[in-house]
């Protein structure tokens, strides 16, 4: 019995499947991954806004008041609302991933994933409370 191949003298001809541009819609997990990556844009934009706010603060009360007024326009409020949602998604998805990146052993046994993730949430809350406390004291 003869074995047929793609070319009579060589090895079988391999078929290389093309990868669709829409691969990230193939699975929910892929889509969530892309969403996690894209929401980092909002993290960056928030950081830039904070830097600009500090710059306005350094330029005196008038510049700061003007900056705050600009933040109160409907466009900025809408952007901040969407941005906050994106930022929360970004933060929570990374916190969910943290136990994968940190394997901590205590007394010879591995600290459970829930404890690692939980401690990060506690840290987040502590930092948030401290920031809120500083702002409310102003």
């Amino acid at each position: 019995m003869s074995v047929q191949t793609g070319s009579p003298s060589g090895p079988p001809e391999l078929y290389h499947r093309p990868m669709s541009f829409w691969w990230w819609l193939q699975k929910r997990a892929y889509f969530n991954f892309i969403l996690r990556e894209l929401t980092c844009v909002f993290v960056g934009v928030f950081a830039v806004i904070t830097i600009l706010q500090i710059r306005a603060l350094s330029q005196g009360p008038d510049a700061y008041a003007e900056f705050i007024n600009r933040l109160r326009t409907p466009g900025f409020i809408l952007f901040n609302t969407v941005g906050l949602a994106a930022l929360l998604f970004h933060a929570i998805t990374w916190f969910k991933a943290v136990p994968t990146t940190m394997i901590v052993r205590f007394g010879g046994t591995r600290v459970p994933d829930q404890v690692i993730a939980g401690l990060h949430y506690v840290g987040w809350m502590v930092v948030s409370v401290v920031v809120a406390w500083i702002l409310l004291l102003r």
């Binding site: 892929y30 991933a97 994968t100």
Partner: peptide
């Protein structure tokens, strides 16, 4: 590795390759 994490999801032996890669990066 961009940490999609699906390698760990499909692993039939619970090897958790995503963890191995992230630990390597650390």
């Amino acid at each position: 590795c961009t940490f999609v994490g699906e390698c760990t999801e499909v692993c039939p032996k619970n090897v958790d390759p995503a963890a191995a890669i992230q630990l390597y990066k650390m």
